[in-house]
Computed example of a mutant assay.
Amino acid sequence: MHIHFDLQQLNWLAVLIATAAAFILGGIWYGPLFSKPWMKAFGLSSDEVNQRHPGKVFGMAIMWTSVAAIMLALFIEPDADFHLGAMTGFFIGIGCITPFMGIHYAFEGRDWKILAINAGYSTLALTLMGAILGWF
């Protein structure tokens, strides 16, 4: 694998689409799919979550998602396809992100259900972003 750390060679349209897709996935994942168990695992109420400033929360989410898309794009070879891109994202999610989340959660004494929700989203989002980046 050749890692190309040249930001000028990135397909910025693909990065933008990958960012948007992962952000939308996050809205579905942490909305209708897992909002209740996620809030319960953190001991949060709907009111507490809704009191947060949405511009700040969503702004930070878009920023961090775009950083992840850019970094993932640097690891996907320019001649990659949909499958290679998806597999790259999947293996980074399941093999790098999830284990470190697990370490943090073990030391923080967090419920393993929240690890499954958060690491599941991260892995799925990276897989989706990788598929988009590879496809372009």
Rank of each mutant, 00 (worst) to 15 (best):
Q9A: 14
L10H: 13
L13C: 00
L13V: 14
L16W: 02
L16G: 15
I17Q: 04
A18T: 02
A18M: 02
A18Q: 04
A20Q: 03
A20W: 03
F23N: 02
F23D: 00
L25N: 09
L25D: 06
L25A: 10
W29C: 09
P32V: 14
P32W: 14
F34Q: 01
F34M: 09
S35I: 12
W38G: 01
W38M: 06
W38Q: 02
W38Y: 14
A41T: 10
G43V: 12
L44W: 15
S45W: 09
S45A: 05
S45K: 10
S46T: 11
D47M: 06
V49I: 13
Q51T: 07
R52T: 07
P54H: 02
G55W: 13
K56V: 14
V57K: 08
G59F: 07
W64L: 15
W64V: 14
T65R: 09
A68L: 05
A69S: 14
A69R: 12
I70T: 10
L72E: 08
L72T: 11
L74H: 06
F75G: 01
I76Q: 04
D79R: 12
A80V: 07
H83A: 13
G85L: 10
T88R: 12
G89L: 07
F90P: 06
F91K: 14
I92L: 15
G93F: 10
P99I: 05
P99C: 05
M101W: 08
G102V: 03
G102W: 12
I103P: 01
H104G: 08
H104F: 11
H104C: 02
Y105F: 11
G109M: 11
G109H: 08
D111F: 00
K113L: 15
I114A: 04
I117H: 05
N118P: 08
N118I: 03
